[in-house]
Design a protein around this nucleic acid. Structure first.
Lengths: 112, 112
DNA sequence: GCACTTAAGTTCCTATTTGGAACTTAGGGC
DNA sequence: GCCCTAAGTTCCAAATAGGAACTTAAGTGC
């Protein structure tokens, strides 16, 4: 089964995963909650390839989780902002954050 | 960047994703919360290949999220159960479920 | 008015992962 | 013996991801 086929699954968790069940997608959403909105910010922050960021942003816009807005007409420049639907994803990221803080502490002292 | 390189990231969300930021991994966890524990159950329920299930179960056990237990000595048979660390992942799945129920309703009447 | 820089992508090619089906191992049931 | 179950593993083709360079449309300095 392909993961995109999960979109009509009986289970709401599976349907959610068909949209965001992907490491880079979730990292992009994390960045949005941290206030980022531009292509190159996502590339730099996630460490994913431009290719991947491009693809994932498209999916997120199609899904109505992000909205592509023009912030400069000449030259044409865009940014991606969370829709209300996207905003409502925050409890999931909070849960990930809390679990990570508790169960996956960084072993290095203070490097970053 | 490979996703496994996220494990020492400064961000707890990223570190969490390095373990479970994968559609099949999260579906396996969902199944665990639904009471499933056996290899073939995961295969049937998720629709992933045996190959993938095998790989993801290994990772989850290594990460201490699932525990591999013998439920039959002869023939050797195993099952996978959530550790406490794994149990504590439930808020994240709840958040996914709630978001999916609200924003991704199934369009078909009642097929499954 | 040419070279350099920025932002947002796209393209190309290689490398890694995934998908699908068959095979394996160790018994049990008839 | 022959088929069945459970938990994997193996093999090969297909899809996806990684890396780096290229594109487009300006703006900046000189």
């Amino acid at each position: 089964m392909k993961w995109t086929e999960l979109d009509e699954n009986w289970c709401p968790v599976a349907r959610t995963l068909s949209l965001v069940g992907d490491r880079w997608t979730l990292l992009i959403l994390r960045d949005c909650f941290l206030g980022m909105s531009r292509f190159d910010q996502f590339v730099a922050s996630t460490g994913a390839t431009r290719h991947l960021i491009s693809d994932r942003l498209k999916r997120l816009v199609e899904a109505g989780i992000l909205e592509k807005q023009t912030y400069s007409e000449r030259p044409k420049r865009y940014e991606y902002v969370l829709t209300e639907k996207g905003q409502e994803f925050s409890p999931a990221l909070m849960a990930f954050r809390d679990w990570g803080k508790k169960h996956l502490p960084v072993r290095r002292a203070s490097n970053a």
